[in-house]
């Protein structure tokens, strides 16, 4: 029983932080609002195949290391295409040719976030050849005709969004079961946790500097107590996420419930911390030149991925002896 990072895990986390902070600092989004696709570079550095088996060209590590990477990714509102690619690789496990083109970064993937009878909505890679859809029951890969989709502006302007109709996609493969869905919950929770951590650090740094009424605002309980609550939300979400990822890795019976719990708490931490960060900054917090809004907008995007809070609640309320919902 050990629920803190061991030296190897710490090393992965530090390496991910080094890479992301140097290549994708949060502030980059003020200069170049949308990340240019760098899938092949990510592949060369090994970030796409962290948890993929070595036989498939991955590093053979686990969901725990993958989670640690995505916490760091969240901290800089990093490239979303890495998340989509990693999940697509997991979905394509049984199709070596497809999997290979994904793991070396040659074929990009967009994520299907809405799929109605007459309309689809995608986010992600601008050169995507495939579209990925993930549900609690299966993960599906489609061939994608992105050229004929319409590009639309996204609230999180670092992310490309497209709409089209059902003729834009054609099924390629389907993996039954909820494994990719669970993996997605852990990865998204990790990114949400990263955002929540970054928001806390941003306001704590400012609260030590900014003076009002003759003292630093961090000395006022109206500021320091909400900061303390932000720290509580971060620690809560982190502990649960570490537990859930480890339970998932070890194949625990309650891994789904643990993962759903982690998702609810990470979503809450990201939503409230990115909000409080802006509020406590005061006027500067609503300006475009400040980075606070970048965190808020990314949290809004991530909070919509892979299910609603209603779906994440169900496993937690499924206690022995409960009536089934009509």
């Amino acid at each position: 029983m050990f629920l803190a990072l061991d030296p190897d895990e710490q090393a992965i986390s530090d390496a991910a932080a080094d890479f992301l902070v140097n290549e994708f600092p949060l502030e980059r989004l003020h200069k170049v609002p949308r990340d240019i696709s760098k899938l092949e570079a990510f592949a060369e550095l090994g970030w796409l195949g962290l948890a993929a088996p070595e036989s498939a060209g991955g590093s053979g590590l686990t969901i725990v290391e993958e989670m640690l990477f995505f916490i760091q990714n969240g901290r800089v509102a990093g490239p979303l295409e890495i998340l989509i690619q990693v999940l697509a690789i997991a979905a394509a496990q049984s199709a070596p040719a497809v999997s290979e083109s994904l793991i070396c970064g040659k074929a990009g993937v967009a994520l299907l976030v809405e799929q109605a009878a007459d309309r689809i909505r995608l986010i992600g890679n601008a050169d995507a050849r495939y579209a990925l859809a993930v549900s609690p029951r299966c993960a599906s890969l489609f061939e994608l005709n992105l050229a004929n989709c319409q590009s639309v502006m996204c609230l999180d302007s670092s992310v490309a969004m497209y709409t089209g109709d059902g003729t834009m996609i054609r099924p390629v493969l389907e993996q039954a079961g909820g494994a990719v869905w669970q993996q997605a919950q852990i990865d998204v929770s990790a990114m949400q946790l990263g955002l929540a951590e970054r928001a806390l650090e941003m306001i704590v740094g400012y609260a030590k500097q900014r003076q009002t009424f003759g003292r630093a605002i961090g000395a006022y309980q109206a500021v320091r107590h909400p900061c303390a609550d932000m720290a509580v939300r971060v620690e809560t979400a982190r502990s649960q996420l570490f537990y859930a990822a480890t339970a998932f890795k070890e194949g625990h019976e309650d891994a789904v419930m643990q993962t759903d719990g982690a998702r609810l708490l990470a979503d809450r931490a990201a939503k409230l911390n990115t909000d409080t960060n802006i509020q406590l900054h005061g006027g500067i917090g609503v300006t475009d030149e400040h980075s606070a809004h970048l965190l808020l907008k990314r949290a809004n995007l991530l909070g919509r991925l892979f299910g609603t809070s209603r779906q994440h609640m169900a496993s937690l309320l499924d206690v022995a002896g409960m009536p089934r919902e009509a």
């Binding site: 629920l3 982190r238 502990s239 708490l265 609640m313």
Partner: peptide, 23 residues
Amino acid sequence: AGRLALIKADTMAIRAMTLAQIS
């Protein structure tokens, strides 16, 4: 239901935090 689920998630996290703290 929403409040109960969050309370349960918090309670699970408290156990995880206890184990993390011991570690």
